[in-house]
Simulated assay, not measured.
Amino acid sequence: MSTNRIRAGLAALALLATATIVVAHGDVAPQPINTDALPAVGEEWLTENPYREEKVGRDVWLKAVEIGASGYNQNCARCHGLGAVSGGLAPDLRLLEAAEYGDEWFVERFRLGYTQDGTTKMPAFGDILGQKAAWAIRTYIETRPEDGALDAHADRLHEVRNELAAAKISDPKALKAELEKIAAEVKTASGAPVADSVAYEAARVLSDAPESWKKASDILTVGLSASE
């Protein structure tokens, strides 16, 4: 991600965070998140995401994305948007760079919340949800695709979805490879190396087993409808 793009993203976040039109959501009670499947990170709050793939490996990273998605949907989506796509009234968290500077901004707001002119715009989640939940949510957010990331592949993904739904797959391995190639071309808004896109998820579950075809089809159906 270029320096100018990072600065532009952070500037947008700063403006949104201080705008008077931001919807107050201090009345939202934080919902607990089960993070037992994630490794411990200690009691002292970190300033950099410990659950990135290069640090913990693919399996732990995927689990962090999964847990983070659930935690985000329960606690953050109401104001920051489904899939972390902001409607404009709260910061678009996808724009936080996937590096220590972006991590510091995120974790400070997560821990302490945000108050403006005596009004709680964001409740403090730190003491209630804990550090593991914070970094799981952060991991999920930074893997979100940038706007329009699937546009160039939308027609083909719809075709693949229909083929999978009809169980008309002659070469599952070739189709899996095609989905993996598409997934590799999908960029994140944060600059993270892997986007947890519908192409990525469909490729991950697809195998020679017919039951996996339906699962991949369902993933594509939900994901493509959400992006339309």
Rank of each mutant, 00 (worst) to 15 (best):
N4D: 14
L15F: 02
L15T: 12
T18H: 07
H25G: 12
V28M: 13
A29G: 06
Q31L: 10
G42S: 13
E43T: 13
E43D: 15
N49D: 10
R52Q: 11
E53R: 06
K55P: 00
L62K: 12
K63Y: 01
I67T: 13
G68R: 01
Q74Y: 09
A77F: 06
G88Y: 08
L89Q: 14
P91G: 13
L95S: 11
A98Q: 13
E108W: 05
F110P: 04
R111E: 12
L112T: 10
Y114C: 10
F125T: 09
G126E: 08
L129S: 10
L129P: 11
K132Q: 03
W135T: 07
R138A: 15
T139H: 06
I141H: 12
I141P: 03
E146Q: 13
D147K: 00
G148M: 03
L150R: 07
H153L: 00
E159R: 01
E159D: 13
N162P: 01
A165P: 02
A166Q: 07
K168W: 02
K173Y: 00
L179F: 02
E185T: 13
T188I: 05
A189H: 05
V194T: 13
S197L: 03
E201H: 10
A202F: 02
A203N: 05
V205P: 08
E211W: 02
S225C: 01
S225T: 12
